[in-house]
Amino acid sequence: MKIGLFIPCFMNELYPEASMATLKVLENLGLHVEYPTKQTCCGQPMANTGCAHEAGELAHRFLKIFKNYDYVVAPSGSCVAMVRENYAQFLDGEDGFEHLKTHTYELVEFLHDVVKPIRMNSKFPYKVGIHNSCHGHRELGMASMSERNLPAFSKIEKILSLVDDIEFVTLKRNDECCGFGGTFCVSEDAISVAMGIDRVNDHLNAGAKIITGIDMSCLMHMQGIIDRDKLPIKTMHIAQILAGES
């Protein structure tokens, strides 16, 4: 099985540890992973701002770089949702796209659906609040949504439960958006920050020491608020917990 590691552009630049942790998690499970170094951005910021032409160019690039892997795995629900849910507009009918679309996974989802590990060899003795990032949550179906009347499940919690000594907190609003929203975070900065503050406080009030999640962008936004307001909590990408970092 040849896995192509897809690291979101901003994670590559700003979060090398979380990116490296992703690689480690996969390698620790005995998987062969390759990081194609020509990769840059999946085009989501452009697409979400309506720049279809620009997003399309980057989608074509992405397909070329990743089409020959058995699986593409990324530590981001949002960027994976871009490939799976929004690339069709640009790539439908292109050679290799159907395979790419059906074989691109978010890290936790990949572990849960494909690798199915029974232990993680990691320990994390902290109270953790899970941030259900919207794209992973509602587009990829990482967990049951509060809006729907379907059986409850959470792939994230199931995989995190393989980590020793971890504890979860119960939030008041389990799957409300943090307000990052891509370019929304600056075009509607007032609302974005208001939403972020509410999300962080929900975790704080629930007694969490760590907010974790599958999307660094949401965590970056909340960490920005935490640092500015000097709040006694911090964010950590889920890969780092799974890789046994603390």
């Binding site: 490296m20 920005g224 500015r228």
Partner: peptide, 22 residues
């Protein structure tokens, strides 16, 4: 810096993931 009005920027690392990987 609209981001920075009410949020800190992330701490910039010395090396990118790509550099570490290489």
């Amino acid at each position: 810096n609209i981001w920075g009005k009410k949020r800190e920027l992330p701490k910039f690392p010395q090396k990118s993931f790509k550099e570490l990987y290489k």
